[in-house]
Simulated assay, not measured.
Amino acid sequence: MRILMVALAATLLAGCAGSAMNDARTGTPYKTLTSDKPEKVVAQCVQFSWQDEAVFGVDAGAYLQPGKKGGSTVYTRSAESFVDITADASGTALSYYAKHDDFVAKRRLAALATCL
């Protein structure tokens, strides 16, 4: 029963985050970046850097999932910040979205930039 409740809660949270991300994708990204590194390496690095409790405190959760149109998406709880990471002809393209233009969004962008 516990496993069923956990699975249901995770599904509901993913659905809420998914709709927030879809809404954000209709606009322009907060920042667009590129990297010469492979997409999977960049995605894992971003996830790891966003999970640094020394930088983000108790809100250091970061989750990695397959991207909506291929590639990967790394996102935070409630999709406050997320990045779509896709391979393209010149390397890897990153589209970073942030719900608010604040200190936390800039800090997540800086952590993301260390993975390029």
Rank of each mutant, 00 (worst) to 15 (best):
T34G: 14
K69I: 02
T86I: 09
K31D: 15
K31N: 09
Q47P: 10
V74H: 04
R107F: 01
A9N: 01
V83D: 03
R107A: 14
G67V: 10
R107S: 14
K69G: 01
M21A: 10
C45Y: 04
K99H: 09
D23R: 09
S49Q: 15
D23E: 12
Y63C: 03
K37P: 01
K40E: 15
S95G: 04
K40T: 06
T32I: 03
V104K: 09
S35F: 09
A7E: 01
Y30A: 15
D23A: 14
Y30S: 14
D101F: 05
P38C: 03
S35K: 01
N22S: 12
T73D: 11
A113I: 01
A10L: 12
E80G: 11
S19P: 00
S95E: 14
S78L: 12
Q44K: 14
T26L: 13
G61I: 10
N22R: 11
T32G: 09
V42Q: 04
S49K: 03
Q44V: 13
V104Y: 02
T86S: 10
S95A: 15
A54T: 15
K106P: 03
V104C: 00
T73A: 07
A14T: 10
K31W: 03
L4C: 13
R77V: 13
T92R: 00
H100C: 00
T34L: 03
D101A: 13
T92A: 02
C45H: 05
A111H: 00
R107Y: 04
V58I: 05
L12V: 15
L12N: 05
C16A: 07
R2H: 06
A87D: 11
A105S: 13
S81I: 02
S78M: 13
T11S: 01
R108F: 13
P29C: 11
A113Y: 00
D59T: 11
T28P: 02
Q47D: 06
G61Y: 07
L13S: 08
K37Q: 05
V46M: 05
T76N: 02
A111T: 07
A14N: 06
T26Y: 02
F103V: 11
I3C: 06
R107Q: 14
P66R: 00
V58K: 04
E80T: 12
K99A: 15
L64C: 08
A17Y: 03
A93Q: 10
P38Y: 00
A14P: 00
Y75S: 11
A89P: 09
H100P: 00
R77D: 13
F56R: 02
V6K: 01
G57W: 07
A60D: 14
K68D: 15
S95K: 12
V104T: 13
L112R: 07
Y30D: 12
F48T: 14
L13C: 10
T34K: 04
G71F: 05
A20N: 11
V83T: 15
R77Y: 14
L94H: 07
V6M: 07
C16E: 04
P66S: 10
T26F: 02
A110G: 07
A111V: 09
G61L: 11
